[in-house]
Design a protein around this nucleic acid. Sequence first.
RNA 1: GGUGGGUUGGCCGAGAGGCGAGGCAACGGACUGCAAAUCCGUAUACACGGGUUCAAAUCCCGUACCCACCUCCA
Length: 471
Amino acid sequence: MTIRLYDSAARQVRDFCPLVPGKVGMYVCGLTVQSEPHVGHVRSGVNFDVLRRWFEASGYQVDFIRNITDIDDKILTKSADQSRHWYNLAYDMSIQLDKAYDALNVAPPTYEPAATGHIPEMIEMITDLIDRGHAYPAPDDTGDVYFDVLSWAGYGELTGQRVDDMEPAGDADPRGKRDPRDFALWKGRKDSEPQTASWPSPWGPGRPGWHIECSAMALKYLGSAFDIHGGGVDLRFPHHENEQAQSRAAGHDFANYWMHNAWITTAGEKMSKSLGNTLSIPSVLTRVRGIELRFYLVAAHYRSHVEFSFEALDEAAAGFQRIEHFLTRARDVLGEIALADLEKLPEDFRAAMDDDLGTPAAVAVIYDEVREGNKALADNAEDVAERAARVRAMLAVLGLDPLDPHWAESGNGTADKLTAALDVLLTQLLEQRAQARAAKDFAAADAIRDQIKSAGIEIVDTPTGSQWNVI
RNA sequence: GGUGGGUUGGCCGAGAGGCGAGGCAACGGACUGCAAAUCCGUAUACACGGGUUCAAAUCCCGUACCCACCUCCA
């Protein structure tokens, strides 16, 4: 069975053929840590986490590099506005980002390199580009170094654009450029910028341009050629176009496949422009749990534009709870639920995932299994066990297994203790209600049920007795 | 101006020539003391106009509207 992926460079779905059999090297552009992470930011994290998990489930050994860019124009501007050190802002935001990823069960990558830790590697690559005639230091005294776009015939091929149709790059003062579309590899330090934001280089003190860090870090950790490069669609141009141009101009094959996830918008606007912090991860998590937000993101195809709404988010949460309830009831019957072997994943599920990560169809398979499992709950424990194990395994591939300890609310066992304490109290109440029902004192029975419900706990009556769930 | 994507039922969201993905909500039924949960069933779709075809939501042509990128962006 072959995994097929949409390669945005080829603009079509291609069979995935790894450069080294059994191994995958993937590089994903993480964030520029300049503001609090919101729902849009983490979509990319979740989507590529699912891809990574599917590769691993399919038997690949994955080397997954996801960088953070911790120095750039915006970090300097914003930190100055907030009267704080730029590195404090970047560090603070990277901590927030880690928390957001953790809240959504986005597994840490193999390594998360930061741009500022790789200045020598970047300088080396820039030097190489100058030696090869594809870059030049600005002739003025700015200390800038530019990539020479016209010297590289392949420029524009990733995004299917002709250089003549492009607008000039605005990332630096254009006076030193040979061509207005040339982009900065190195930015000479300006007097207005903090000393701490500059590094020595053959061209004087300065800092890296925006794109070079990814080329340098991908080269260092994944080698001259690697399998997959990913990121949000907005990065296709200029970021990825420029990365590919500079890496190939420096003699590297670079990425074999390019994958881009689509946007999440609100009210038709992309999130980076709108709504401030109302859609920050901590804020959204006051409304739904992390696992529900992740389900919302996974239930849509990664290349589909998602129009975010709280109504749709609530719907997704309700839908996910149906899956969870099946597992809860199955566990009550079975004691515990095994995790099915990956070879036993339903064929439809595998086929959906192999087809360019068809998570919507994969989720539909989970619902089919849940429906059949719910039926079996009445009289066929063996069937329940098999189906529940498959549901868990499918959810685990999507990072959505509710029984994964990652989702436990606290790491110190408090949640378990509280659950045990509640169970003691509720068992007594349920016993009282059972006696009332047996005596046909339904008013008393319903009063107990209402009281429990007002505490946010629902009662599920089954032929073998009553159970409780926190709603 | 250049490049790419989209418009599917009350809502979300798949699919890509023939059998109505799935979910949420709604309605009817089963179960229940009544509910809840669960199961069974029901209805409501492919932006518009042409064309190709035995057959089009799907392919082609045209139109409308929306969105993204064109050097800040996940």
